[in-house]
Computed example of a mutant assay.
Amino acid sequence: MCKAIKGHCVLKPVFCFLLFPLIGIFSCEKSSSDEAVLMELFQKEKDLNCNLSLMKDSITMEWDNINNLLEKTLPDDMPQEERANMLKVRNASLIRMFQSFDDTDETVKMALNKTERIDQEMTKRITSLKKEANQIELQKIALFEKINQTKGVEEVARIKGLNEEVLARECE
């Protein structure tokens, strides 16, 4: 198998000559794999941020609608300070505590109940999304540490710059 020349195997240098590029390819492939995983994580983080923003805007709109409805239907003889305080509140239980709420129209009460349910569901969903965001952050940190050990701080800084670019994009 191996031709002996001065006590050495000819196959060894050929093998080493072929092996070193393969090791380089696999190590580069692993580094680019880490970067690809990070890019996926960056996009997931961006998507989560966009979802959170949409949810915030949505619930804000729901409460704005309730406040507009309350403002239109509250009695004119209601004390101005109580009216102002009631319209600032964005919590169904607190709104119900106002004495004048008992006298509001049934459609307002139903709308408040609906908004309260939406708010509770949004709160659950936001909590879930924030947990998911924390998991993504932990994965990013682990990969940044790995890249820092293998490629150095400059490479980590470059990739963090990519993260900032992804996060700065407009939501779709």
Results as ranks from 00 to 15, higher is better:
63 W>A: 02
122 M>G: 11
11 L>Y: 09
157 A>P: 04
54 L>Y: 14
143 L>F: 09
108 V>Y: 04
75 P>F: 09
108 V>R: 02
33 S>N: 11
78 M>G: 00
4 A>K: 15
35 E>M: 13
8 H>T: 07
31 S>L: 13
66 I>M: 04
4 A>C: 10
41 L>T: 04
103 D>R: 15
43 Q>T: 08
61 M>T: 09
46 K>G: 00
118 I>S: 04
111 A>G: 01
117 R>C: 02
172 E>M: 12
38 L>S: 01
160 K>R: 13
129 L>F: 11
9 C>D: 06
43 Q>C: 04
47 D>T: 10
61 M>S: 12
140 K>V: 08
103 D>A: 15
91 N>A: 10
12 K>E: 07
122 M>Q: 11
65 N>C: 01
128 S>F: 15
138 L>K: 12
67 N>I: 03
102 D>A: 14
35 E>F: 12
151 K>D: 02
49 N>D: 12
126 I>F: 07
164 E>K: 09
97 M>E: 09
33 S>C: 04
145 E>V: 06
153 V>L: 07
100 S>M: 07
155 E>R: 14
79 P>N: 02
109 K>S: 02
149 Q>N: 13
37 V>R: 15
124 K>S: 11
21 P>D: 01
19 L>N: 05
147 I>C: 01
40 E>V: 02
128 S>R: 14
